[in-house]
Amino acid sequence: MQIALTLNGKEVSAEVRPSLLLSEFLREQLGLTGTHVGCDTSQCGACVVHVDGVSMKSCTMLAVSAAGTAVTTIEGLAQGDVLHPMQQAFHECHGLQCGFCTPGMVMSAIEFAETTPEPTEEKARAWLEGNICRCTGYQNIIDSMLAGAAKMKSTQAGA
């Protein structure tokens, strides 16, 4: 099937088989391997991307269902060498160790920041229900999320 979508701000069209998952489309067909696949059973959140601005598990969505949408992956966040404020926060707060969960964490954290008017540690912890990390013990991820949310707010206010 022919599909067309906006990917990280660029128009993309491709021929895909209907059973191709969005995660497979991104990684295998387009070579965008920033989106990770940890479990492939909808549990771990390593594969989270944004579809029309909303975070979704790309391993549990068909590529054909993404036709006509705007998809943003971890590769689409930085502006050249300038990291997205949430990426910057993960960097500064040591929000990662091996980094396997990080793309999904960052994509999920951005939606948390966008949809949570007054972020707190408790809200951040509850939000991470669908993102699993085997390394960090979460504390620095929570710190990153809160710092990133504050940065995003001030960037927005400054813009």
């Binding site: 989270v48 999920s108 669908g130």
Partner: peptide, 9 residues
């Protein structure tokens, strides 16, 4: 229900 990504879809 589930987690934010499950609820989004």
């Amino acid at each position: 229900i589930g987690d934010p990504q499950v609820r989004n879809r």
